[in-house]
């Protein structure tokens, strides 16, 4: 059975690119376009991994992780943050909130995202 990945991202083109890449790798993808939707989706889908953007409308990535931390059903789902920014404070904060990894969009290629996903949950 294919591993389920929830992609929480507001940028349409990024969604398209990542979705295409991840499906090709054999994962099952669901998409949420902001934090609120993301939380709702993860309760329904119960993904194996969440790819989470930080700056999003309605609810940002940090708040999503805070909410996840409060929910015993959600707090153990691994999270990889994908963000435009990558300041050390942000990374620190994400780690404290339980994020497993962090990648900066401008510095990484789609393939490297796949590598990080595989590292967390395998194929």
């Amino acid at each position: 059975m294919a591993k389920k990945i929830l992609l929480v991202e507001d940028e349409e083109i990024m969604i398209n690119l990542l979705q295409k890449k991840l499906i090709r790798e054999g994962y099952e993808i669901s998409v949420a376009r902001n934090g609120e939707e993301g939380l709702k989706a993860m309760r329904e889908v119960k993904p194996d991994l969440i790819l989470l953007d930080i700056i999003m409308p309605k609810m940002g990535g940090f708040e999503v992780m805070e909410e996840m931390g409060k929910d015993k059903n959600l707090k153990d789902i691994p999270v990889i943050v994908i963000s435009n920014s990558g300041q050390p404070v942000e990374i620190d904060k994400a780690q404290k909130l339980g994020a497993k990894d962090w990648l900066i969009k401008t510095e990484f290629d789609p393939q490297e995202v796949i590598d990080k996903v595989v590292k967390q949950i395998g194929k």
Binding site: M14, L17, K21, R24, N84, S85, K105, P110, Q111
Partner: peptide, 23 residues
């Protein structure tokens, strides 16, 4: 700059996938 980074990332990733033959 932050706002610019988003489209730049999108361009970067698209170009990469094009170059890698993913598309």
């Amino acid at each position: 700059a932050h706002q610019l980074r988003t489209p730049l990332s999108a361009i970067k990733w698209t170009l990469r996938m094009l170059l890698d033959g993913d598309l």
